[in-house]
């Protein structure tokens, strides 16, 4: 069966769910961050698929922007994690509970 839009969307949805599960279940800040990247990539796949099957390039421009923003976001986020680690000597979410009610 020739893969159509639906196939790509299912793959994208499953990848997104994998990333979401990682964010919810993993306990290491850096791994959580990587799972966020996985979710962004899944969204990118959906956008490219829509772009291809709707004969419209705007989706690809959007993906281009998402990749740029993700790169900036990773740089800032990792700097935050490093600053946090310097202060607390941990990158484990269960040790970072000072904002917990």
């Amino acid at each position: 069966m020739t893969p159509g839009l639906n196939h790509y969307l299912v793959v994208s949805a499953l990848l997104f769910c994998l990333g979401l599960f990682g964010v919810l279940a993993r306990r290491n800040l850096i791994v959580i961050y990587m799972c966020l990247e996985l979710m962004l990539n899944a969204a990118n796949l959906a956008l490219v698929a829509f772009s291809r099957f709707n004969a419209n390039l705007n989706g690809q421009v959007m993906v281009f922007f998402i990749i740029t923003v993700a790169a900036a976001e990773v740089a800032v986020g990792l700097a935050l994690i490093v600053a946090l680690y310097r202060k607390r000597q941990t990158a484990h979410v269960e040790d970072l509970t000072s904002l917990r009610f």
């Binding site: 196939h7 793959v11 990848l15 990587m34 996985l38």
Partner: peptide, 13 residues
């Protein structure tokens, strides 16, 4: 698609 999902799973869990 299979490889992406497999590697994604191995990355997460």
């Amino acid at each position: 698609a299979g490889l992406a999902l497999l590697f994604g799973f191995l990355c997460v869990a």
